[in-house]
Amino acid sequence: MNKRRIFTNRWIIVIVLTLFLMFYQLPFYISTPGMAKELAPIVNVEGGFREEGSFSLTTIRMGKATIIQYGLAKLNDYHVIYPEEQIRPEGETDDEYNHRQLHMMDSSKEQATVVAYTKANKDISIEYNGVYVLGIVEGMPAEQHLKVGDRLFAVDNLEMKSSEEFIKYISQMQANDIVTIRLERNGKPMEVDIPLGVFQNNVDDSEDDRVGLGIQLVTDRKVKVNPKVEIKTDEIGGPSAGLMFSLEIYNQLVEEDITKGYKIAGTGTISYEGVVGRIGGIKQKVVAADGSDVEIFFAPNEEGKTRTDKNGAPILTNYQEALEAAEDINSKMKIVPVDTFEEALAYLEQLEPKK
């Protein structure tokens, strides 16, 4: 009887321990290769042209680490572990994090639309409705004066249409300079004086510390296009699909099929001016694309400039990282470096159609 009880107790301990290892969450996030998702079913330009090949966005999977997942990630080069504070600011809830990711996706779709319609010489108009505070950096001067949701419409009596204008103006100033901000909060106009603070630069010691107010801004634009375009992204978040969105939209707007019959994927943010920007997790996205038999992969080139971290170690460009991953997994994909939408388009235009 005692032996049976001991045996039962041991099994209970094993079950409890197993459940603990499987479900207890550590203060880390783990990202893993996701998938290459074709954009034709997602992007729909009214009356748009069809394509023989395909454009795809690439994703990574991100989630809180359990003890077992943490251990397995240590054994896999393409499972990356991040401290929680690198992914989500302290105090940010899951809902706030997801909202931020979806907002960045919305901005990415809008930027891609502007780039594609402008290049295709299609009907497009942009109405500016102000610059809004999307986030505030803890410990920076804005924390004492501004709130998320404030609409900023002038700095030092200069009216601002976009966040880019605001950032450009502030970037010319020095630490402790004081700027006067005119804003609207809950429908009430206000004016505040704010000194500029110094951001602690923890990425590149070769640059001087930047100054600013410590705010994340978003421009409230209303973009109207003809023909209409609809982009269904559901729960996909983040800004990294911008380049691929712009190529898919453009391809549906013009008669020539720029895929030339190839399966094409890639990654990179896109600005309203068509500049392709750096993203995270590119090695995992190369793995995801390779698993979907992609033939051509666009990677942000960052003008080929290698930076250094605080210890003087080189930080590779996205293109260099993508090349390393492709070679490591013996991928047959062609990795193509791009700095702009125009460069990606020029590469595709010179391709011979696939036979």
Results as ranks from 00 to 15, higher is better:
residue 15 I to A: 10
residue 42 I to R: 13
residue 292 S to R: 15
residue 109 K to W: 02
residue 31 S to K: 00
residue 327 E to N: 09
residue 166 F to K: 02
residue 323 L to K: 14
residue 214 G to C: 07
residue 2 N to W: 11
residue 216 Q to N: 01
residue 1 M to Y: 08
residue 139 G to T: 12
residue 143 E to S: 14
residue 130 G to S: 10
residue 83 P to R: 11
residue 55 F to L: 12
residue 3 K to G: 04
residue 144 Q to L: 07
residue 335 I to Y: 02
residue 199 F to N: 07
residue 56 S to I: 00
residue 214 G to Y: 01
residue 93 T to C: 08
residue 59 T to A: 11
residue 42 I to E: 13
residue 310 K to R: 12
residue 238 G to S: 13
residue 244 M to R: 05
residue 141 P to Q: 12
residue 327 E to V: 08
residue 299 A to T: 15
residue 46 E to F: 10
residue 106 D to I: 14
residue 144 Q to E: 12
residue 306 T to P: 05
residue 302 E to G: 07
residue 203 V to D: 04
residue 138 E to C: 11
residue 289 A to T: 09
residue 235 E to K: 13
residue 68 I to H: 05
residue 279 I to P: 00
residue 296 I to P: 08
residue 209 D to V: 00
residue 285 K to N: 11
residue 77 D to W: 05
residue 100 R to H: 15
residue 208 D to N: 10
residue 194 I to Y: 03
residue 309 D to M: 02
residue 59 T to S: 11
residue 201 N to V: 04
residue 31 S to T: 12
residue 53 G to F: 08
residue 169 Y to T: 13
residue 83 P to I: 12
residue 16 V to A: 13
residue 322 A to Q: 15
residue 132 Y to L: 06
residue 307 R to G: 05
residue 182 R to Y: 03
residue 29 Y to S: 01
residue 134 L to A: 14
residue 111 Q to A: 08
residue 15 I to K: 12
residue 259 T to C: 15
residue 80 V to G: 06
residue 14 V to K: 03
residue 335 I to L: 02
residue 218 V to G: 12
residue 117 Y to H: 15
residue 39 L to G: 11
residue 261 G to A: 07
residue 297 F to M: 08
residue 61 R to K: 10
residue 353 P to L: 03
residue 61 R to D: 13
residue 316 L to Y: 11
residue 320 Q to R: 13
residue 224 K to C: 02
residue 56 S to Y: 01
residue 292 S to A: 13
residue 100 R to S: 15
residue 12 I to Q: 07
residue 234 D to I: 01
residue 221 R to F: 11
residue 251 N to M: 11
residue 104 M to E: 04
residue 170 I to E: 13
residue 65 A to E: 03
residue 316 L to R: 14
residue 54 S to V: 08
residue 134 L to Q: 15
residue 345 L to C: 06
residue 2 N to M: 12
residue 67 I to E: 03
residue 329 I to N: 14
residue 48 G to M: 06
residue 93 T to W: 02
residue 206 S to R: 04
residue 284 Q to A: 00
residue 74 K to E: 12
residue 225 V to L: 11
residue 249 I to A: 06
residue 14 V to I: 08
residue 249 I to L: 05
residue 281 G to N: 10
residue 312 G to C: 03
residue 314 P to Y: 12
residue 50 R to F: 05
residue 231 I to L: 01
residue 353 P to V: 09
residue 265 A to D: 05
residue 122 K to G: 10
residue 29 Y to Q: 00
residue 301 N to V: 15
residue 146 L to K: 00
residue 159 E to V: 07
residue 277 G to T: 01
residue 252 Q to T: 04
residue 142 A to G: 11
residue 355 K to H: 08
